[in-house]
């Protein structure tokens, strides 16, 4: 495992910590898209089906359990916690799940490495993760006052994807025969979706302004 992969995973973990801090400590999920969080829970549930059948490493297993557990916890908080759920911007978070799920599933049936349930669902999760941030980006654009935790959460998620790109470049040059086109192309698409957000995040940070996106 190279440094970029480790930093990517840690950034991903940190993004979850930031989000849980906002939800659990401040008891608010204002500006957070439940649609995106539900899509992430689906991503992890379909990707980590191999958790008990194929052992990669203790590190991988522990991280998988953490991502599965936290993603479902976040969804539970936003849907059922009596204080947190009242801070959810339901009227603004209008993106439809099926508009992302159906095309991703169709694509996974068409473009995959093997036609087995585990492989198709794994491929589906890769495609879905690439676009799962979409409802969150739409909600951010509609939010007038984006708080620091929400802005930092999305920034950390984008940084995690950027670090994975660097990890793939290192792996390509150091591991013989290492290629994974499905993951690479999806990863590039996923990172590109953050480009606009990054631009405004850095611009506002440099000007010492509160984060706001042009609508």
């Amino acid at each position: 495992m190279n440094i970029f992969r480790l930093c990517g995973d840690m950034t991903h973990l940190l993004s979850v910590v930031v989000l849980l801090l906002k939800i659990h400590t401040i008891k608010s999920c204002a500006g957070i898209s439940l649609k995106t969080q539900e899509l992430y829970a689906l991503v992890f549930a379909t990707r980590y089906l191999d958790i008990f059948t194929h052992h990669v490493s203790l590190y991988n297993t522990v991280m998988k359990i953490i991502f599965l557990g936290t993603s479902f916890t976040i969804v539970w908080y936003m849907r059922h916690h009596k204080v947190v759920r009242q801070t959810y911007d339901k009227e603004q978070d209008t993106f439809k799940h099926y508009m992302l799920i159906i095309p991703c599933f169709a694509l996974a049936l068409l473009i995959k490495t093997k036609f087995t349930p585990l492989e198709v669902l794994w491929t589906f999760s890769i495609y879905l993760e690439a676009v799962a941030i979409f409802p969150q980006l739409v909600l951010l654009q509609r939010t007038k006052n984006i708080d620091n935790l929400t802005g930092n959460y999305v920034f950390l998620l984008g940084a995690y994807r950027g670090l994975y790109l660097l990890n793939w470049i290192v792996r390509y040059f150091t591991e013989k025969g290492y290629r994974q086109w499905i993951t690479w192309i999806s990863g590039i698409v996923q990172t590109a979706l953050y480009a606009d957000f990054f631009y405004y995040y850095i611009k506002c940070w440099r000007n010492n302004e509160k984060l706001h996106l042009p609508s």
């Binding site: 992969r5 191999d50 990669v56 991280m63 991502f67 994975y164 993951t183």
Partner: peptide
């Protein structure tokens, strides 16, 4: 081992 290698990322 092929499976494990292709799915060794999170």
């Amino acid at each position: 081992t092929m499976f494990v290698r292709r799915h060794d990322e999170l």
